[in-house]
Design a protein around this nucleic acid. Structure first.
Lengths: 156, 156
DNA sequence: GTTTATATATAAGCCCGCTTAACTATTTTG
DNA sequence: CAAAATAGTTAAGCGGGCTTATATATAAAC
């Protein structure tokens, strides 16, 4: 049973990734973003706000690299970078509206094919899939330290 | 209903991507592969064999770039690059055993957390998820030109 | 067989993202 | 307050991945 489960997950992942990543790379290329930049924006969105060194830790790059990379995003008006009033050594990175739109767009680019997929499913199948994915989503959230666990644990 | 379906898919995608991509980037970094290189290897695995220009088209880069990139993979013993006997202008790129192992490893890196997930599910849930994902996988394969459609349509 | 088209390789050069090292500003320690 | 620690920026330099332009080999067209 576990065997079958894992195998099914793997098959799904493979086909899912192939579709989604292809669109995603295309979006990055067309809009001139690096993987690091987009991952940064995702992370900042996820956390609401985070520091340069948090970001560097999450991306596994040096603080200097994170500083340079965010600088470019700030210049493009995608991020704001303000002093943390509690500790003025820290910077608080946050997405601007433009930044949020960019992230949303990139997600939509990945998801274009969902629209097409929905047309191939009848209502029974949709229901079945919805409840299965809800289980997966819920349970996955319960898993051990999420990779983005550096931000203030907004799970619940 | 379609609304709910899409929303559920999006939620799942977000959490799924966050987990999987994090591990994947880590794997790339630790093993010194670029996104392009890994995507190339995936594509070649998927097709069994493809040419330099096929690869360039799929990655949306110049033929020169594809040639250079594959050169590095050949030097590392991950690819073979042989003349196509039918048209000796073409090169047939194929994965070596080492290359196949590398791709498999990178997949496993992405999937580590599936193992953990399986422990949180009871048998009923697993069955439910399996049949839902089987539907998704099947229907997705039926979708219009897959992004990797340059290779000899081994769908069936 | 000569010309033209195709597939790849090579060269020169650009930009980007990364690193380390040095520097500034702020906070903490004692 | 002086010394040490922390957060971030800046500078210099390296390597990778990309581009265009050029060269080579093969195949197709006439």
């Amino acid at each position: 049973m576990n065997e079958l489960f894992l195998e099914t997950m793997q098959d799904w992942m493979e086909i899912f990734m192939r579709r989604s990543m292809s669109k995603f790379r295309q979006y990055l290329k067309e809009n001139g973003f690096s993987m690091t930049q987009m991952t940064s924006m995702f992370q900042i969105l996820h956390c609401g706000s985070c520091s340069i060194s948090d970001l560097a830790a999450h991306l596994d790059i040096s603080n200097a690299a994170a500083s340079q990379s965010t600088e470019r995003l700030v210049q493009q008006g995608l991020l704001t970078r303000n002093e943390d009033p509690n500790d003025r050594r820290n910077k608080r990175l946050e997405l601007t509206e433009k930044g949020k739109n960019t992230v949303a767009e990139s997600m939509q680019a990945r998801q274009m094919w969902f629209q097409e997929l929905v047309g191939l499913l009848d209502d029974t199948e949709k229901k079945q899939i919805i409840s299965a994915l809800e289980i997966l989503t819920t349970k996955t959230k319960e898993l051990s330290p999420s990779p983005g666990s550096l931000c203030s644990e907004s799970n619940s």
